[in-house]
């Protein structure tokens, strides 16, 4: 346990330093988020021109949703899948077996460090900016325990989801085409680009059966009060279901691929 804690501390430090090494890149990254926020806000304003509410959502709420969802995306960002597929490709994955801690645990610690970096460098500054610029003004934000539970759930779901697809890389060498297609589906049904409540009924119903809405849409909808009351509980249950599902799947895949690796000698 102590060892893992130390590993976490070292990883956090390295992640933070890496973020600052390329100075121009760092400033440009800040710029890129600013541009994104500005562009999306302009887009929503243009769409809302001459309308006060669409589907019960006002422009102020939509603006708040946009800004918060960008920050939430930074928080939930995960590159476990990339890390695993990269290690499978260059063969360094077999090294991971020789370490004392199990590989998924190591990955989780690295992910925590990555998030720590994201929170310190990105999330906190942006939250301050949001408060200062008054994006949350006139919008009832729900910051109670249900929101935090759903955010944590989304975070873990994202991790196991990526872990699962990373583990699939053990069997199939080249799946980049498939991943492109999957990401396209995710882009639509996570609600990160266009909120799900603007979807036509059938698409909205379809989105409920996919795991992606549990990653973005559920916590954000709870936050801005689009999901309330007993709906919160059922949304959280669905999220928990997906989380358990991907956790099991990734564990299964990991066991199988480890056995395979030992048999084949890496």
């Amino acid at each position: 346990m102590k060892q893992l804690w130390d590993y976490l501390k070292v990883s956090c430090k390295i992640e933070l330093e890496n973020q600052l090494v390329f100075r121009s890149n760092f400033f440009v990254s800040i710029l890129s988020v600013v541009i994104r926020v500005a562009m999306l806000l302009a887009l929503w304003s243009a769409l809302y021109q001459g309308k006060t509410q669409v589907d019960g959502i006002s422009l102020a709420t939509m603006k708040c949703y946009t800004v918060v969802s960008i920050v939430f995306e930074l928080f939930i960002a995960c590159n476990v899948e990339q890390s695993v597929t990269g290690k499978v490709k260059d063969g360094s994955i077999s090294m991971m077996l020789t370490r004392p801690a199990s590989y998924p645990v190591t990955l989780f610690i690295e992910q925590l460090a990555n998030t720590f970096q994201a929170v310190v460098v990105w999330v906190i500054p942006y939250l301050l900016v949001i408060l200062l610029c008054g994006f949350a003004r006139g919008v009832q934000l729900y910051l109670g325990p249900w929101f935090w539970a759903s955010a944590l759930g989304a975070y873990l779901l994202m991790f196991f989801y990526q872990l699962f697809f990373g583990m699939i890389a053990f069997w199939t060498q080249e799946i980049s085409g498939f991943l492109q297609a999957r990401d396209a589906v995710m882009l639509v049904f996570s609600g990160s680009m266009v909120p799900l409540w603007f979807f036509p009924e059938k698409l909205f119903a379809l989105a409920q059966y996919l795991p992606f809405q549990a990653m973005y849409s559920v916590p954000l909808s709870i936050l801005i009060g689009k999901i309330t009351g007993p709906d919160i509980r059922s949304a959280l249950l669905v999220q928990l279901g997906w989380l358990l599902g991907f956790w099991l799947l990734s564990q299964l895949c990991w066991r199988k691929s480890r056995r395979r690796m030992i048999v084949n000698g890496g």
Binding site: G177, Q180, A181, A184, L187, V188, V194, F199, P200
Partner: peptide
């Protein structure tokens, strides 16, 4: 596979925007 992936991605973004 890549061809299918690219096509799906573009189609999805287009559909989203139309919606």
């Amino acid at each position: 596979v890549m061809l299918a992936g690219v096509f799906l991605r573009e189609a999805a973004t287009l559909a989203l925007m139309v919606v």
